[in-house]
Design a protein around this nucleic acid. Structure first.
Lengths: 236, 236
DNA sequence: ACCTGAACACCGTTCAAGT
DNA sequence: ACCTGAACACCGTTCAAGT
């Protein structure tokens, strides 16, 4: 009598499940069929596993989406060293774009999860922190970096929403981070983000909620864009 | 014996259903609870109606989403007349932003529906057509308008994806427009969009698929942005 | 102690049975 | 002819019953 084998969808025996394997299957499924085709049941099926087995490795679907975001954001190249800020930023943004083209669902998912969470996922934080670092090394003041991030806007990671939105806005109950990091650890791990947040908050501490005047930043970025177009129009 | 009254959820008698009322209820529901809280059953409930009744006024949920997009995009102010292009574009983009802040679900829904459809919804087309018109009246060549739209990017309507993406990309089966408009009618109704599409296609008809070189346009816009930041850095 | 089938409360949509 | 309840094929997640 043959030994009973846990059959996968193709009848093959399978390696043990892990968070990585679950996330990998989820990313592959989303790449193929879009985010609408992504379901816990479908992921389980593609792994030759009962749906409930996934919940051992991801707490729920939202955490799965966060994990997928982290996985693909980590595909973005780190900033080039030993070049000027412009080359480094340019190369990195183009790398982010290549990632977004490989994973057409990513921008949408990042945007929707950013809206629901209080803090971006770790990989997104790392991405931002190192991007800020490039600007700082290039001689940008904290204020100027802040403007720069708003100017880059959706070219940074594909989504258009502000990253750290006013959390005191009514009607927007956001999930507290399940593995919430204490502020001092945040500051240690993402020093540039922390410094920026500090500077921005101190600047305008008369404003309630987030210290960032989104309307001002939006207009600033818009005007920089329009000025660029005007210059282009004149030189043509 | 009392006359039987079709009871609404609050027990009130209700005006007859219409597409407008259905869309209005859907928009209100999304404004309150986000797009995840939006379901055909919930919309029906808020109207004091059985779910199936909605299908008399909207074909399915995707058409409902398209209708919601059209409804909120029509809230954007028309471009101001009798001013320079810069003032007109600026004012209009700020109006679009106010709409997106009123309807936080809109950018996400527009982006996801743009990806699924072959043609943007009528109100989006009108918005683009009149926006192109403002640039044209300001003396922009068709090519320059094309660049300008890419430069504006997500500030135009909140989403980051290209509007008329390469429809020959593999794996992206897009819905044909249910009420597909013949090309000549398209050209008559959206003359500026048509002229732009024509110019862009003729320019690069060696390229297969859409005539727009997205990579080039992305880099063009990115460089304009980076140049603006560099100028800012030098004058600080 | 571990695993999982059945179940629950949803979802969009179809369709036949009712008036 | 019109309307709609029941049903179908899904969904994320819980939980008790099984080993």
């Amino acid at each position: 009598m043959e030994r009973t084998v846990q059959a996968g969808s193709a009848g093959r025996s399978r390696p043990p499940l892990s968070t990585e394997r679950v996330l990998g299957a989820a990313v592959a499924l989303a790449d193929e069929g879009g985010v609408d085709a992504l379901s816990m049941r479908r992921i389980a099926q593609s792994l030759g596993v009962v749906p409930m087995a996934l919940y051992k490795h991801v707490a729920n679907k939202n955490e799965l989406l966060d994990g997928m975001i982290d996985a693909v954001v980590r595909e973005i190249d780190p900033p080039a060293r030993d070049t000027d800020w412009k080359t480094a930023v340019r190369g990195r943004v183009l790398s982010a774009r290549r990632m977004l083209l490989r994973h057409p669902w990513a921008a949408q998912v990042i945007e929707s999860r950013i809206k629901a969470r209080t803090t971006p996922t770790p990989a997104v934080m790392e991405y931002l922190d190192s991007m800020i670092g490039v600007f700082r090394d290039g001689g940008f003041s904290l204020d100027l970096v802040h403007h720069a991030l708003h100017v880059m806007g959706s070219r940074l990671l594909g989504f258009s929403q502000e990253l750290f939105e006013d959390s005191s806005r009514p009607g927007t109950d956001r999930e507290p981070d399940p593995a919430a990091m204490p502020p001092e650890e945040m500051a240690a791990r993402y020093p540039h983000v922390a410094a920026l947040a500090m500077a921005v908050t101190h600047d305008t501490d008369s404003v309630v909620g987030s210290g960032c005047d989104d309307q001002f930043e939006f207009e600033f970025a818009l005007d920089l864009t329009l000025d660029g177009l005007e210059r282009l129009l004149r030189t043509t």
